[in-house]
Design a protein around this nucleic acid. Structure first.
Length: 85
DNA sequence: CTTCTAACA
DNA sequence: TGTTAGTA
């Protein structure tokens, strides 16, 4: 099922501020599905899983910049950016 | 009511 | 990170 949720749903579901979610996208550690309408961001349950890992890493004391390169924990999110640097 | 961009504090 | 302005 491609359950796409809006940023508001994701924020209320994860407890993160919309501002933070947009910021994660800005730094490239969370990539939503841009849909046609106006540039609305829609996320799937996979993004929510990635965001969950990000929260854990942050809570552990990782900087957003470190998390961005934490593709080594791909097994956790099952879909991190296998991009280099 | 909800979302988006951009810039400022 | 919060928030404000105007908009669809």
């Amino acid at each position: 099922m491609d359950t796409l949720i809006s940023i508001g749903e994701l924020s209320s579901s994860t407890g993160i501020s919309i501002r933070a979610i947009r910021y994660y996208e800005e730094i490239g550690l969370l990539i939503p599905y841009k849909t046609s309408q106006n540039n609305y961001r829609y996320y799937s349950d996979m993004e929510k899983g990635k965001l969950g890992v990000i929260l854990i890493l942050k809570k552990m004391g990782f900087s957003l910049r470190e998390i961005k390169t934490r593709r080594s924990v791909g097994s956790l999110a099952g879909g991190f950016d296998e991009k280099d640097e």
